[in-house]
């Protein structure tokens, strides 16, 4: 096993869709076409600007039936790491960047009798590809899309023009709210719910669905955590016999990659489980920031997800 395949691409279009959202159209550098993908898939963009490296996951939002280019949307997030700002500001038409082969951690459940898609803000991006696919497959779907206001919301006019009454929009500034409890009531058996958006919105949707008596098997969400910053620490790698410094704004995975080791990863957001690493020794406290390990596994201190989790203490030894 190894890290995902990397592909060099050129930015063919860079459009400011809103003041904070940039749409990038990515085309391959060679005549080899980009790999196909399915609705809900993402790619990890690897962008280098001098000494700074950013690897962020972005949902593919183009149509899965258009193999000529990928489309992603980059939201400028004022986070302390500044990764999205670096891409947002540094990438223009003509820039060459590296992306990973797409992988889908948010797939359509085709057993569904009906699909209800709920998006908040930039969380619309995976649903751009999913609606294209559900529409072509003749599936019963509806999209509910909440935004702050008409100016900062992306793509809602486009989606309404394609799918008409199947798209419902909600704007905070005019006090339009999604009446989720009412929406969930009376849906036919076998309806599936998908949500992507800010963490608070995902929590609200999951809680509302649970309180409406929906089984968790029918509720799907995509939640990528950004690696949270913290205190610097050292990590000893047992197999490669190296000791690596992890800086405050760096994840263990990033620090290890910077040292030339290539662990397995897919989402870089604590969701997929691929970078799960055995902890051989931990004299101190592991800060688990992932959504993958169970509470029992976290408590055992035997495993960590090196993409988002951190450590505080005297000594950490990983099986790497």
């Amino acid at each position: 096993m190894s890290a995902p395949t990397e592909i060099r691409v050129r930015v063919a279009e860079a459009e400011a869709v809103t003041p904070a959202i940039k749409r990038l159209k990515l085309v391959p550098l060679t005549s080899t076409p980009l790999p196909d993908f399915s609705g809900g898939a993402h790619t990890v963009v690897h962008y280098t600007d001098g000494p700074r490296h950013v690897r962020n996951p972005y949902s593919l939002m183009g149509s899965p039936f258009d193999p000529s280019a990928y489309q992603i949307s980059v939201l400028r997030v004022p986070d302390s790491r500044g990764g999205s700002a670096l891409i947002h500001d540094g990438v223009h038409e003509g820039t060459e960047i590296t992306i990973t082969s797409p992988i889908n951690l948010f797939p359509i459940d085709r057993r569904a009798r009906r699909h209800i898609l709920i998006a908040g803000g930039i969380g619309i991006t995976p649903f751009m590809a999913m609606t294209a696919q559900l529409d072509r497959e003749g599936a019963d779907f509806q999209l509910h899309y909440a935004m702050r206001d008409r100016a900062s919301g992306a793509y809602w006019k486009l989606l309404k023009s394609i799918y008409g009454h199947r798209v419902h929009t909600y704007f905070d500034d005019t006090n339009e709210t999604l009446a989720l409890t009412r929406l969930l009531d009376g849906q036919p058996l076998g309806t599936h719910l998908y949500v992507c958006g800010p963490a608070g919105m995902i929590d609200w949707v999951l809680k509302t669905a649970r309180e409406a008596g929906w089984p968790e098997e029918n509720v799907h969400f995509e939640r990528f955590a950004a690696p949270p910053p913290g205190k610097p620490f050292q990590v000893a790698l047992a197999r490669s016999k190296r000791t690596i410094d992890v800086a405050p704004r760096e994840s263990v995975l990033e620090a290890i990659e910077a040292a030339g080791i290539e662990p397995q990863f897919l989402c870089r957001g604590g969701a997929c489980g691929q970078c799960e690493t055995a902890v051989l020794e931990a004299d101190g406290t592991l800060h688990h920031n992932d959504h993958y390990l169970s509470d029992d596994e976290k408590a055992s201190g035997k495993k960590m997800m090196i993409c988002v989790s951190r450590f505080e203490g005297a000594r950490l030894v990983l099986d790497l």
Binding site: L184, D185, G186, Q187, P188, L189, T191, A212, G213, W214, P215, N218
Partner: peptide, 10 residues
């Protein structure tokens, strides 16, 4: 019963 049941049925 299932023919007319809706989500929220356990």
């Amino acid at each position: 019963v299932l023919a007319t049941a809706t989500m929220g049925t356990r």
